[in-house]
Amino acid sequence: MSTILVFAEQQDGVFKKAGFEVVSQARKLADESGADVVAVAIGSGIEDKTGVLGEYGADRILLADDEKLENYNPETYKNVFVAAARDTKAEILLFSATTTGKDLAPRIAAAMDSSMASDCIGIGLNDGKLNVDRPLYAGKVFAHIVIEGNPQIASLRPNVFEAVKSREGQNVSAEKISLPDLASKISVIEVRRSGGDKLDVSEAEIIVTGGRGVRGPEHFDIIEELAHSLDAAVGATRAAVDAGWRPHEDQVGQTGKVVSPNLYILCGASGAIQHWAGMSGSKCIVAINKDENAPIMKKADYSIIGDLFEVVPVMTAEVKKFRE
């Protein structure tokens, strides 16, 4: 009986949805191949919270619970997981490509002298080999990859795979595993949760930008509210900055900051080339503009023709709805 070992990621004692997605996907693969799904939970004081992993399809839950494991530490987590992988002789190791997963998985791969595929958006088994699809060149091309060796390792992109409670109500109790040496050359001094801090446009993964159409500094609050609901930074076009509505540090464009976030929402701006040159690298562009002939409407991935003063507040409400 082969084993698929899954890293079930938690933060502050709460298991993450991304982890459930991987467990669910592992369950699917296991059902096809007759393997066991074993979830590894690492943290502090999480014993009574592991049960849910069984509902998503874990056959066994291995628990490493120790005060020293409260926060993610790459070296201790890696040691724990590698020990579990060796113990279970798992042939497939799956992670979620979250910040933690991206940091952890390659260490484990190297420690076990295995190659891995990160950030996969498709996964399947073929002849006992893990076959994955993953984006290359910022999604311009997809690669179909066959992973060989033992173990075979992959991390899955969050929000791509469904988290399904295929075994609703199932109760799997956690097995505590013996902990390896928890010494680490890296120590976590502090964890700061963001909130309230103004995000810089050049660092943000989501940016909401207002242009001339915002019509005044006092109206930027609706832009700010949408940004806040998305944990996004607020950007401004040159026109808005020139008019003195926003500080220059917020300016996105050829002569401001050149950004390439995952999502760029442009409200009340035509998307003239000086602006376009600063944000055309964004992975997804949304435009809200009254003028359906504005150049941005042709270039944006998605656009809404409408008054930003009506549309943006509704967007904020909708985002809040699903984020809750």
Partner: peptide
């Protein structure tokens, strides 16, 4: 190339 989702607040969801 560019999808116009709709007009006004109805298009938001």
């Amino acid at each position: 190339e560019g999808k116009i989702v709709g007009e006004g607040t109805e298009a938001v969801p």
